[in-house]
Design a protein around this nucleic acid. Structure first.
Length: 669
DNA sequence: CTAGGGTTAG
């Protein structure tokens, strides 16, 4: 019996005062069955008028009608309250009300049962409840089916249950299809899909997203093209599919063509751009989205803020903050934490800290974000203080907290303290992961305790991740330990033959020691293995635009003035005592040429551009995709003094805050 | 929004 017929019958009866006598009959004779069974089902089982004595007093009809309406109203409002309890996850209150209801309908039972389909792990209770429903309807069966599927009970059990459903509607079929699709069983899903009597857009969507999930983009496209009804869900699923497979152009085309877009659609595009390293485009789209009047939610914000962090678009991040500030998301911990981490990654610790203090309900992720922020800035003591404060309020640290702590010790040069924290992890019941070992190797290696670093690698309870040898190699370069460098490089390249970093580091070490024959050898084998080095580049945000520079850049329109500025600075720097560190010019060319190459490093270009264009009182924030080069580090210190400017450089491992000729890292990096 | 419940996209 369909819902529409039921409600129609009911309203019809109630509205028609002249039929109210028949109501009374229904009510008195079948009262119990009528309400305890779901389906108010059979008003027709009492053929209207037939059983009714003509002498029935008419004055009582309005009374009974009112009484009836009152009862019904009670049930309806109780059902509503139960539903709201279930929605807010409060099963106890829902049950309390449920147990106090003298009359229950199947709707009442279904509302309760729905809790179990949204919450996993109580499949037995759900089944017991289902079995108690006096007259389960199709919806009851559907909810139970989705309970079975959501609890990843054996799909065969779910299928058997599905087959037992006496009257299946489209949703029953759809639920079963999505059960198969979620389990990756697309051929079964397809079989049901072709068998089902009526398909709605949900059926098509379930199949399309199922194919995308199991990696069969072509089949998804095929279905999408023939689908008679394409809802916004299907379009969005396809956009996700195209993005996932790197077909950005196709995703863009769909996005342009589709008739209706909602927040999920926009998010899919934005997140897709961010994941495919096109954060700029993602951010552009976000601006368009807000302009078109769509209000972001938490998950949407998180992907946008991640985009801001990656491309260091602090100005846009601030705009997002403004938006959050004016919305109910202001009280959301996840939204706040995303903002903190955005500020930290853009190097704006002051605003991160302000926000951290404002957030009332901090979770472990919030604390971790702030501790990592301090760690990245090299503010080791602040990070460690915050950790103590965190323990003070009873917050339990997790493994990420310890990564942040070790990073803090590392960047602040607190070697022994780092070792202590590493050893204390067991006391906190936190498992040591490869990340922790990587931090420790960096910590020990950088401090020159190379042998201890190697011992730690040997003691690792798992196969060392190849990157850890890259870390060791970096340490060898600082401490000019050629023997260990070769050991590290050999390991690195045997684990990961395509590692550009391994070749480059080794070549750099040879170059630094003027072993040009070896450099040539490494470069040759690099070519043979078809390894491509990640080109280094730097960028900075100016207004809403991001300017990018490559080493020896030839493209940026302002190059003439930048070169002038750098040549001028070069002279002033030398007068102040700067000696170009030719170790970092990694080509076997004459000294003068080396100096010229050094002066065209991407970070210097970006800094010079910043000096020309960024207002005097504003710090210059430069970002680099690799680690900052040693000569540039030295040069920028001089520049900060000569120009009396604050210059902040974020590289892959930390922030360097240059001021008055000094760097916040204390030259330990 | 239509007394309520189930299925699809991040």
């Amino acid at each position: 019996m369909s819902k529409r017929n039921l409600s129609f019958n009911f309203k019809h009866i109630i509205r028609n005062q002249q039929h109210s006598f028949c109501l009374l009959i229904i009510f008195s004779s079948t009262k119990h069955r009528y309400f305890s069974s779901s389906t108010i089902q059979n008003p027709n089982a009492n053929p209207q008028g037939k059983a009714i004595p003509s002498s029935f007093p008419s004055h009582s009809s309005s009374f009974s009608s009112n009484y009836m309406t009152h009862q019904l109203g009670d049930i309806i409002s109780s059902n509503k309250i139960i539903t709201s309890y279930v929605h807010s996850g409060d099963l106890d209150s829902a049950f309390r009300l449920f147990n106090n209801m003298p009359i229950k309908t199947t709707v009442t039972w279904n509302s309760i049962l729905a809790w179990y389909s949204k919450n996993r792990g109580k499949i037995c209770e759900a089944r017991q409840l289902f079995d108690k429903i006096p007259e389960p309807d199709t919806v009851s069966y559907n909810i139970m089916l989705s309970c079975l599927i959501n609890n990843s009970v054996d799909i065969g059990t779910a299928e058997a249950f599905f087959n037992q459903i006496p009257i299946k509607d489209t949703a029953s079929w759809n639920t079963m299809i999505s059960g198969f699709a979620q389990g990756g069983k697309m051929s079964e899903a397809r079989k049901l899909f072709s068998l089902m009597p009526q398909r709605n857009s949900v059926s098509w969507n379930a199949m399309i997203s199922g194919y995308i999930e199991s990696g069969e983009l072509d089949l998804a496209v095929e279905l999408f093209e023939v689908a008679p009804v394409k809802s916004v869900v299907a379009w969005t699923a396809m956009i996700n599919g195209y993005m996932k497979f790197g077909k950005i152009k196709l995703a863009e085309r769909l996005f342009k063509e589709m008739p209706v877009k909602n927040l999920v659609t926009w998010s899919a595009m934005i997140a897709g751009y961010v994941e495919k390293c096109r954060a700029e485009d993602g951010l552009k789209l976000f601006r368009m989205m807000v302009r078109s009047g769509i209000r972001p939610n938490v998950s949407n914000l998180s992907s946008v803020l991640l985009g801001c962090s990656e491309s260091s678009a602090l100005q846009l991040g601030r705009q997002v903050h403004q938006l959050v500030f004016k919305s109910p998301l202001y009280y959301d911990t996840t939204a706040g934490t995303s903002l903190i981490s955005m500020y930290c990654k853009c190097g704006d610790l002051e605003d991160a800290w302000k926000l951290f203090l404002e957030i009332q309900r901090k979770d472990v992720v919030t604390w971790n974000a702030m501790i990592s922020g301090f760690a990245q800035q090299g503010a080791g003591e602040k990070a460690l203080c915050l950790f103590n404060e965190m323990k003070g309020v009873g917050m339990k640290p997790d493994w990420i907290t310890f990564v942040a702590l070790l990073l803090a010790c590392n960047h602040a040069g607190l070697v022994d303290l780092g070792v202590q924290y590493f050893d204390s992890m067991r006391d906190y019941g936190v498992e040591t992961k490869p990340d922790h070992y990587a931090c420790m190797v960096d910590l020990l290696g950088r401090a020159g305790r190379l042998n201890e670093a190697v011992d730690l690698i040997k003691k690792m309870p798992f196969t060392p991740p190849s990157a850890i040898f890259g870390t060791l190699l970096g340490a060898c370069r600082i401490h000019k330990n050629l023997e260990l460098a070769e050991f590290a490089a050999t390991n690195l390249l045997s684990f990961d033959p395509s590692s550009a970093a391994g070749y480059v580091q080794l070549a750099n070490i040879y170059a630094a020691m003027n072993r040009w024959d070896h450099v040539a050898r490494v470069r040759r084998s690099m070519k043979e293995s078809k390894v491509v080095k990640t080109p280094g580049y730097s960028w900075l945000e100016l207004g809403s635009a991001v300017h990018e520079f490559r080493s020896g850049d030839r493209k940026h329109p302002a190059l003439v003035s930048i070169h002038e500025k750098l040549n001028d600075l070069g002279k002033k720097m030398k007068l102040a005592g700067y000696v170009p560190d030719l170790e970092y010019a990694l080509h076997d060319v004459g000294e003068e040429q080396k100096e010229q190459l050094l002066l065209r490093h991407s970070e210097k270009l970006a800094v010079a551009f910043g000096l020309i264009n960024v207002p005097l009182e504003t710090p210059i924030r430069v970002f680099k995709n690799l680690r900052v080069c040693g000569d540039c580090h030295c040069a920028i210190k001089y520049i900060s003094a000569i120009e009396r400017r604050d210059i902040i450089v974020r590289d892959t491992s930390r922030f360097h805050h240059f001021k008055n000729g000094l760097c916040s890292c204390g030259d330990y990096w």
